[in-house]
């Protein structure tokens, strides 16, 4: 069964169209990159999948269900900004996740936090930006979800932290789970992706496997992206 399916999905904000008749299917066991420049509709798509937004037109379904209570049980979502209470420390956050999610694997979270040497007692507001992002990713990936929606998981952190984050993603997902990673930092995620979706001004302009894009264009995904989204005429 398809983990995520969008049919003619459209979202307007007033007169502005953020997503325009998008058709996407994600199979299980795949890591897909949702790639596009700023303002292309990446976050809108992810928010529709979490029912933080409702479609203007069209359908979106997760394992056959409309986004809602049932899908929230199986979707683990990492927003593009910190949404957790800043006064909480690691322990508080682990309790919070345990309370909210049946599929939260506490031991997995504790082990990863330990390996990062984060002090259990300091609140989030005293952590560096990189540490906060790593911590949020650890919490997100510690759920045994069917679908992980990661909105810009590597933006704003240094290259070493990026490697850590990608390693954490690769080492923590179950084989039948799917991951959708939105980013514009393509060179960094390219080697972990099965598939790429290019979004441009709210439209899907390409969905294909990364290997076949490389084969057909003779270029890396990053180079191909730069060509497709070039900002000037030569």
């Amino acid at each position: 069964m398809n983990v995520l399916e969008c049919r003619n999905l459209t979202k307007n904000y007033g007169s502005k169209t953020a997503l325009d008749s998008v058709n996407i299917t994600l199979e299980s066991g795949r890591i897909t990159g949702l790639l596009g420049p700023n303002g292309s509709g990446k976050t809108t798509l992810i928010k529709l999948a979490c029912r933080l937004l409702v479609p203007t037109q069209g359908d979106i379904s997760i394992c056959g269900n409309q986004p809602g209570v049932e899908t929230k049980k199986i979707v683990s979502y990492l927003p593009d900004r910190n949404y957790l209470p800043e006064w909480m420390n690691c322990r508080d956050l682990i309790y919070l996740y345990e309370d909210f999610y049946e599929d939260f694997d506490t031991q997995r979270a504790v082990d990863m936090i330990r390996s990062l040497n984060i002090d259990h007692k300091i609140p989030m507001k005293k952590m560096s930006k990189g540490t906060k992002e790593k911590l949020q990713l650890i919490l997100t990936m510690s759920r045994r979800a069917k679908l992980y929606l990661l909105d810009e998981p590597i933006a704003g952190v240094d290259p070493a932290a990026r490697d850590y984050i990608l390693h954490t993603i690769l080492s923590n997902y179950d084989e039948d789970a799917s991951i959708l990673i939105s980013t514009h930092l393509i060179a960094d995620v390219e080697s972990v992706l099965d598939e790429a979706i290019f979004l441009k001004e709210g439209k899907v302009i390409l969905q294909d496997s990364v290997d076949s894009i490389r084969e057909q264009s003779g270029k890396s995904l990053d180079e191909h992206f730069r060509e497709v989204f070039r900002c000037w005429e030569s």
């Binding site: 890591i31 990608l166 390693h167 690769l170 080492s171 080697s191 972990v192 992706l193 099965d194 290997d211």
Partner: peptide, 17 residues
């Protein structure tokens, strides 16, 4: 597959292939 995927920093499906 998983070990090599982590070593290479790539998707397990790529190593499988």
């Amino acid at each position: 597959v998983r070990e090599l995927a982590l070593e290479a920093g790539v998707n397990p499906n790529t190593v499988q292939r």
